[in-house]
Amino acid sequence: MGKKGGNVGLALVAALVAVPFVPLTLWAFAGEWRFPDLLPTAWSLRGVAHLVEPGGGVLGATLNSVLIGAATAAASVAVGMPAGMAIGGYQWRFKGVVIFFILLPILVPPLASTMGVHVTFIRLGLADTLPGVFLVHLVPTVPYTALILAGVFAERTGELEEAARTLGASPWQAFLRVTLPGVLPGVAVAGLFAFLISWGQYVLTLLIGGGNVVTLPMLLFSAASGNDPVVTSALALAFALPAVLALVLALRVLKPGERAGGFVGPGKFS
């Protein structure tokens, strides 16, 4: 495909992504929009006002979502890093079996496993709490971060670390000064993935949070089942914003066209 064709294709994809946001944006700022008008006949900031209303609960829910998402991202990377290092960096027996078990939370329907988790969390006093919701969000995120980081570590040969060791670096120094800076783009991508998965969680939050822990998706779902398209659209826009930001950030970090940081084909794991 020529450069021009590529640009047309890019524009098409961009349009495909952007089109759903058009009615959403229109609704979010609509004052009056009745059938069969093509555009709203009056505009208002009622939806936006609802988002930032001090007692409206949206700010609190956003804060909850950000807190849980950030904690989930950090913990997923912390857990996924050693796992990814073991899978990607070393050869050992029964590796396939272990990879299967790491993938299991993605394969099993979350409802099925979370029922059991719920019972345990009630016993531990974690049900209906923010820490409980954070912990259950790790169930779907850790497999992804572990696999992304496995791909990152599989690209490394260990030679740079060997060079560092003969120059006087201890294993820890070699990891902190050589390995970590090398895998940082991949770690950032894995963290962003985990954040977005957590950000979009509804079912797990509802089951474990029991309505006590209110996050943005909870508000969005209840608004969607209500009868106010203006508020729903405003919420939906606020909900989509971090995903767009994350995507832009990830593209910055990965610098597409230079090399594909953390993504592996399935071949490496079969």
Binding site: E159, L160, E162, A163, R165, T166
Partner: peptide, 20 residues
């Protein structure tokens, strides 16, 4: 003795400079 305490610096086939 671990490599870092042997004072035996090694140069490899590839330069292996730290890219960052």
């Amino acid at each position: 003795t671990p490599p870092e305490r042997r004072e035996a610096a090694m140069v490899f086939q590839k330069p292996l400079l730290f890219p960052h």
